[in-house]
Structures are given as structure tokens and as C-alpha cells.
């Protein structure tokens, strides 16, 4: 995303160097316009409405709607449930995201390396978890984590213990992290893999001529090519972690006392809205969460792209 400010036209085809040429006029809108139009309808409008909602308070039964200004925000910033949920996803993020991205990176490098037997098979099987629809997740993980009749129970019997209790409150976060990792390593691996596929052959030739072995090639050619993809994948994963919802929700039917309605900030906003009909406060929580997430993601993006030069 670095901007170079070359203005000159290239005199003839095949100029030397790899400086990026960009046009300094509004033709870009031609390409960006359609996306932005739909984006405005499906994202900006609801967010605008949510901001509007967050300035009011509606009493569902008696009393109607009242303008309360920033009261909802003060309430949210002092809400212990919100901060408990936030702390939880922050811890989750710090541990799970690096583990998942490293696994995905190693998998992508391995599959791209041409040293793997049946790389195509690995590629699709590692991707498959991402394609599994959520509706079976309860049944599937209910079996694997089931400590009465499921796999966990079998493992406990095998080891002669009762220590493996994936749905207990001390194990819950790692159990969720496991599900998320299982689901998304393939997704991130593909992001890295397709970035690796755009590396031109000459770079590998040049490295080979310089006498670079496997690891030097990885460090000097592949990793720099992956820089942009790694930044994206990190940002997506950060946003995804802060918005953690599906996986704890899946486990909620199996462990209703461990997973509260405010287990993650996203669940909190959802339950406020749908179970409690408290749309205004729900919108407030969503906006606050959105701002925090955006700031952190933006910082990561800035750091990532500054080093890209």
C-alpha cells in the first residue's frame, strides 16, 4: 500500500525498474464505485442507523423512546460485563492468532515447497474445515468434547482419569481456540499459498544462482513476498477474534452455565438485541467495540505497510 509519486509517462514499452506507476486522477472511481455503492447500502447505512440508535433509549413496554445523548456510552464504558467480555477476547486473540497464523504459514510453505508428497491432497483437506456448515458444529464438537459419551469420555477412560473436561470453565477458552484454529488454518493457509503463487520464477532462479538453499530462499524470497498477505491475515484474525461469536454460541447449548450471554462482546450485543430487545444499548456496545477494533487493526496495518517498503 505504499504510494509512489511517479508522474511521468513511460516513453516506450518495457521500462526498466519496478517502480509503481499510478495515475493521479479520478479514474479510480470507475472501479471502486460499484463496490462502494453496495457497501454504503449494506454497511454504512446500518452503522449510521446504529449510531443514531445509540443516542436514544427505548423502553419496550412503557414510556417510548427518549433521547439520552452519550449516556449509553458512559454506561457501556463502565459496564463490568462488557469489560469482562473484552478482556476475554483480548486474551484469546493474543494466544490463538499467532498459533493459528504460524500453523497456516508453515502449511502454506510446505505445500508450496514442492517437497511434499500429494500436496494437492493436503491443500484440500486442510481447507475442508472452513467449508463445514455451522449447523453440524454442535453435533460434531458435542461428540468430541462430550465427557459423558463422547471422545473426551473415551480418552478419560483410556487414561483412567476424569481430568479431560473440555467444557468446564477452565478449559473453555482453549476448547474454543481449538475449534477456531481447526476451522481457519485452511483459510489462512490459502491466503498465504495464493500469495506465494504470484512469486515470479526469476526470483527463484536468481536465488538458486546465488547458491541459496531452502531456508535462505524462504527467508529472502518467499517471506518478503508474503508480507502483504501476512498483514492482511493478521488484521482479519484480529477483527475475527474481537468479533468472536459463532464458536462460543455453538458451545452454549452444551455448557449453558459456562458460556454466559455476555461471554464475548459480540454475544453481549446480540443477546441485548434479540433476547432483551435493548436495541439502543446493543448498538452502543457494537459501536464501542467497533472503534476499539478499528483502531487496533489500523495500527497493525500501518506498522505492516511501513515495513513493506
Amino acid at each position: 500500500m505504499a504510494e509512489s509519486v511517479a508522474h511521468q509517462h513511460v516513453a516506450r514499452a518495457g521500462a526498466t525498474g519496478r517502480r509503481r506507476r499510478v495515475f493521479k486522477d479520478g479514474k479510480g472511481w470507475l472501479f471502486v464505485g460499484p463496490f462502494l455503492a453496495v457497501f454504503a447500502l449494506t454497511f454504512l447505512a446500518p452503522i449510521g442507523y446504529a449510531i443514531y440508535l445509540s443516542l436514544y433509549r427505548n423502553q419496550a413496554f412503557f414510556g417510548g423512546t427518549v433521547f439520552v445523548g452519550l449516556d449509553n456510552y458512559t454506561q457501556a464504558l463502565q459496564d463490568p460485563k462488557f469489560w469482562e467480555a473484552f478482556a476475554r477476547v483480548a486474551v484469546f486473540l493474543v494466544v490463538q492468532v499467532p498459533v493459528m497464523l504460524v500453523l497456516a504459514l508453515l502449511a502454506a510453505l510446505a505445500i508450496d515447497s514442492a517437497r511434499l508428497h500429494a500436496a494437492g491432497f493436503f491443500r484440500i483437506v486442510i481447507f475442508l474445515p472452513y467449508a463445514v456448515p455451522g449447523v453440524v458444529a454442535v453435533l460434531m464438537w458435542g461428540y468430541i468434547y462430550g465427557d459423558n459419551f463422547g471422545l473426551a469420555a473415551n480418552l478419560n477412560d483410556l487414561l483412567g482419569t476424569t481430568a479431560i473436561q473440555p467444557l468446564s470453565s477452565s478449559w473453555m477458552l482453549p476448547s474454543i481456540a481449538n475449534i477456531v484454529t481447526w476451522e481457519f488454518v485452511g483459510y489462512n493457509m490459502l491466503i498465504f499459498y495464493s500469495a506465494l503463487r504470484t512469486v515470479p520464477g526469476e526470483l527463484y532462479e536468481a536465488a538458486a544462482i546465488d547458491g541459496a538453499g531452502t531456508f535462505r530462499t524462504i527467508l529472502a524470497v518467499k517471506l518478503p513476498a508474503l508480507r502483504g498477505a501476512i498483514v492482511i491475515a493478521t488484521i482479519f484474525s484480529i477483527i475475527g477474534s474481537f468479533q468472536l461469536f459463532n464458536e462460543p454460541n455453538i458451545l452454549r447449548t452444551l455448557a449453558p452455565n459456562v458460556i454466559t450471554t455476555y461471554y464475548t462482546p459480540n454475544m453481549y450485543a446480540y443477546n441485548l438485541s434479540f433476547a432483551g430487545q435493548q436495541f439502543n444499548y446493543s448498538a452502543t456496545i457494537a459501536i464501542v467495540m467497533g472503534v476499539i477494533t478499528a483502531v487496533i487493526a489500523y495500527v497493525v496495518q500501518l506498522r505492516g505497510s511501513r515495513e513493506a517498503l
Binding site: G26, W29, G33, L36, A37, V38, A40, Y49, Y52
Partner: peptide, 20 residues
């Protein structure tokens, strides 16, 4: 060409504002 597109984007935004 791009001016027409810009008009479209403006129209789209207006429609959005209307929807809101």
C-alpha cells in the same frame, strides 16, 4: 466515463441516506 460513475456513486449514497 468516470464522471458518470461518480454520479452513480453520489446517487447510491443519496439512496442510502434515504434508506436510513
Amino acid at each position: 466515463q468516470w464522471r458518470r460513475v461518480r454520479q452513480l456513486v453520489v446517487a447510491g449514497t443519496a439512496l442510502t441516506a434515504l434508506a436510513v
